[in-house]
Simulated scan of single mutants.
Amino acid sequence: MKTSAIYVAAAILFSASIPSLGADKPQVKPMAGPRATILRETPLYVEPDTSSQKVDRVQEGRELVIAESSGPWIRVFANTDVEEVNEKDAPIYGHDTVTPPVSGWIQARGVVRETTPDGDKVLMGEAATMEILAEDARGPRNAGQAARLLYRRLVEFFPNSQLAAEAAWRAADIRWQFQKADAARLPSSKERDAYLREQLDDSELKKIIKLYPHSKQADNAAFEMIDNKLCGDWQGQAKCPEKEADYYEKYASEYPDGPRTAQALYQATYRQAVLGDMYAADGNDKKSDAARNHAKELAGELEKKFPASDYTARAAALVFKCEQGIAVYGSDRE
Rank of each mutant, 00 (worst) to 15 (best):
E41Y: 00
E87R: 10
T97Q: 12
P100F: 10
L150G: 09
T116V: 08
E131L: 07
Y93E: 07
E126M: 07
Q59S: 15
E83P: 04
F157P: 04
L39Y: 02
E47P: 02
V46E: 12
E60V: 14
F158Q: 01
T97R: 10
E84S: 11
R109I: 02
M124H: 08
W73V: 04
G125S: 13
I106Y: 05
S103E: 15
A143R: 00
P30F: 03
T129D: 14
T129A: 13
Q59Y: 11
R148I: 05
N142I: 04
F157W: 04
I106D: 06
D81S: 14
V65Y: 06
T42E: 07
K54Y: 00
P48Y: 09
R113T: 15
A67W: 04
A128I: 02
L64F: 12
S103K: 10
D120R: 03
G139H: 03
T50E: 13
I106K: 00
W105L: 07
E83A: 14
H95W: 09
L133V: 08
A134H: 12
V76A: 01
S52R: 10
P101V: 13
P34G: 06
E114R: 03
Q107W: 11
T97D: 10
I66C: 12
A147F: 02
S69P: 01
G125F: 03
D81A: 15
R109C: 00
M130K: 14
Q53M: 10
P91W: 02
R35M: 09
S52A: 15
P34K: 15
E47I: 01
E47M: 13
P30C: 09
R62C: 08
V85T: 07
L64H: 09
L150I: 08
E156I: 00
G144H: 08
G144M: 06
E114D: 13
P117C: 06
V85G: 01
E87D: 13
V155D: 00
A36L: 11
R138S: 14
T115I: 07
D89N: 10
T50N: 05
L123R: 08
G104K: 04
S70E: 14
